[in-house]
Design a binder for these strands. Structure first.
Length: 637
DNA sequence: TATCAAGCTGTTTTT
DNA sequence: CAGCTTGATA
């Protein structure tokens, strides 16, 4: 069964979706709930109906979740028997990676390079940090990775960036930090690693430098549609700009008020400067909100209007008026979580579905208490955002084995894998890794390890995987025969539940044709693991960052208090832009609600007590004061 | 000298 | 709660 999005649009949406004027590019400014994604899908439908070949069309998003959402919507307009005619939907990173892999010759990409995830990147920085004379004086591996990544994503010279952003007393460490950066960069090159930023960087560089490559990529795509344009960073914008310069038609949708990714180098000014940088552009607007009631929008508008930044947003509800939002204050986080759970139950008793409820959290950890109550009461739920399946240590243990079989130079993963075995610690593992350095083939590295450790069993599993690299499912099943007993003894009684995650991974590997595809897909796109239970009848706990683009009838935003909004880290930074971003985060959270918006907070932060008393006494008068109350808190800096 | 066991620390958000 | 550092032990 298919529907048409084109038949169900308002005038502005239709104008954007079917734009066929003289301009090459379209920039669509669309506030929260104004049908942004709907218009993007309708545009896709329009182009396909016009006869554009699906493979000439690419849709780009920023988060994996947005990708998934977009794919689901697209499948509504494309007949199921013609799903092969679906245009590709990817995150920027996935898009660039596939481009590099599929066209490695034309793009001069070395296909042997392998992607490392953030965790691996941190290990490398830890190593590089340990190489300098006074490591203790250096920033943490987290900070190092962030400085490095941020300066690259924003296209800044690293030294200049450090000079501008480090506090004055740490300025004398800059030479040492730059040295660490160099060590990291060199190590990456030596081992054939590719970090997340490299993926974008390589593509951007090639597009800048080579006209031939620009034209080559432009010959692959006629239309590129970008969602959440305000989340583009310098590298991503460069890619868009360069492709447009050789004739690819861009359709970019964005909202500066919903920009939440500046920590990743995103610059919402890219939305404002778009027309200057891509001259052949028409600017269109959507401003009628179809999602929420006016009361919810009023509160959200107020929050934005208190800002020193002029967002030029005033959302008007197509639906008119409904219930006023609530703001409850609780004694402590446990009472807060318990009340939310009870409220969900009572709404369900009155006819609502579990799936109508969404709990929005600033950080994944804040959702844990609610999750606990949901588990206890047997309420079906899902958690989106934060660390997931792939970050759990047992999965990383298992995947380290798969990774070394794919790339024998991968020292980080060798160390992890070797450490699993009894009587092998950091020292032995690093010694082994140093020897592998000199090997020139996978089999040579394996026999070297065998010889060094005098135990053939360690590499047996890896040999099995290599033999079956064309069949991930078989390879992984065989691998587990070798590794399960080791993991079982490492995790003891926890093994029972951890084992199930591995079962899941093995099952999911069936979908892939090669081991490389499997690993890559899991590094950039771990969401695959979550769509296993496609059950919609679930309460959702979700981080605000993941929640962009989603909605629910009843939304709970918990922890609406200083320290959370704005987050204490942002307050501590003393950076006005970071505080401003916190406002937008809360704005995005509030504008997710369709019918009912409930904000909660605790009176004293972090206080945890056994007494389950909640202050029903807190009257709804507070409600009218929320924006001003919050405003005070946003001025803390 | 190297492994292992026990504490301490710290963690926003995502690719 | 997992990883890293530290200190005890072989």
């Amino acid at each position: 069964m298919t529907t048409s999005y084109l038949t169900d649009l308002n005038v502005e949406q239709l104008a954007a979706a079917t734009y066929n004027g003289s301009k090459q590019n379209v920039l669509l400014l669309a506030g929260a709930g104004t049908g942004k994604t709907r218009t993007l899908v309708a545009r896709t439908e329009y182009l396909l109906k016009k006869g554009v070949k699906p493979n000439k069309l690419a849709l780009l998003t920023f988060t994996r979740r947005a990708t998934q959402e977009m794919q689901e919507r697209l499948s509504e307009i494309i007949p199921t028997d013609k799903h092969h005619r679906m245009p590709s939907v990817n995150t920027f990173h996935m898009f660039c990676m596939k481009l590099l892999r599929t066209h490695c010759k034309a793009l001069k990409f070395n296909p042997k390079l392998i992607i490392i995830d953030r965790e691996d990147q941190l290990s490398l920085f830890l190593w590089a940090r340990g190489m300098v004379t006074r490591p203790d004086d250096m920033p943490s591996k987290y900070d190092l990775a962030n400085y490095y990544s941020y300066s690259r994503n924003t296209g800044q010279n690293k030294e200049a960036y450090l000079k501008a952003n480090l506090s004055s007393h740490s300025k004398d460490r800059i030479p040492a930090i730059l040295h660490i950066f160099n060590l990291y960069t060199k190590r990456k090159a030596d081992r054939g690693y590719l970090d997340f930023d490299d993926i974008l960087y390589l593509v951007a560089q090639r597009l800048i430098k080579s006209e031939r490559i620009r034209k080559y990529v432009a010959s692959l795509y006629d239309y590129i549609l970008v969602d959440e344009m305000q989340d583009t960073n310098h590298l991503q914008f460069t890619i868009i700009e360069r492709l447009a310069s050789v004739g690819v038609s861009m359709f970019c949708v964005g909202d500066d008020a919903q920009s939440l990714f500046s920590f990743r180098g995103a610059d919402f000014h890219n939305v404002n400067s778009f027309v200057d940088r891509l001259p052949n552009t028409t600017k269109l607007k959507l401003d009628i909100n179809y999602r929420s009631t006016q009361e919810i929008l009023d509160m959200s508008n107020d929050l934005l209007n208190e800002s020193r930044i002029k967002y030029d947003k005033h959302l008007v509800a197509h639906r008119g008026c409904g219930n006023s939002p609530h703001f409850w204050v609780f004694h402590d986080p446990i009472v807060e979580a318990k009340w939310i759970t009870q409220d969900i139950i009572s709404r369900r008793n009155k006819g609502a579905k579990w799936g109508d409820h969404m709990v929005l959290v600033r950080t994944a950890l804040l959702g844990k208490t609610v999750e606990g109550f949901l588990i206890n009461l047997n309420i079906p739920y899902k958690v989106i955002g934060g660390t997931g399946l792939l970050d759990s240590s047992h999965v990383k243990d298992f995947l380290s084995m798969v990774r070394v079989s794919r790339s024998y130079m991968s020292d980080i993963h060798w160390v992890r894998y070797l450490n699993l075995w009894p009587r092998i610690g950091q020292v032995t593992a690093s010694r082994a890794v140093n020897v592998i350095d000199k090997c020139s083939s996978s089999s040579e590295s394996l026999s070297t390890i065998d010889a060094m450790l005098g135990r053939r069993t360690i590499t047996d599993g890896i040999r099995d995987i290599i033999k079956n690299r064309k069949n991930p499912y078989t390879a992984l099943k065989l691998a587990r025969k070798h590794i399960d007993p080791i993991l079982a003894s490492k995790y003891g009684c926890e093994w029972e539940w951890r084992k199930r995650d591995l079962d899941l991974i093995v099952k999911l590997s069936k979908k892939f044709k090669t081991l490389t595809q499997f690993i890559e897909s899991y590094t950039i796109d771990p969401t695959n693991s979550k769509d296993v239970d496609a059950n919609d009848e679930l309460v959702t706990i979700i981080t605000v960052h993941s929640a962009k683009g989603t909605e629910a009838k009843t939304c709970y935003v918990l922890g609406v208090q200083p320290g959370v909004y704005p987050h204490y880290k942002a307050i501590g930074s003393g950076n006005a832009d970071e505080i401003e971003e916190e406002r937008r985060i809360l704005y995005v959270a509030m504008t997710r609600a369709e019918d009912t918006l409930i904000l909660t907070r605790t009176s004293r932060d972090n206080q945890r007590g056994p007494e389950f008393m909640y202050s029903e006494a807190m009257d709804e008068k507070l409600l009218s004061k929320i924006p001003s109350t919050l405003e005070k808190e946003f001025r803390i800096l």
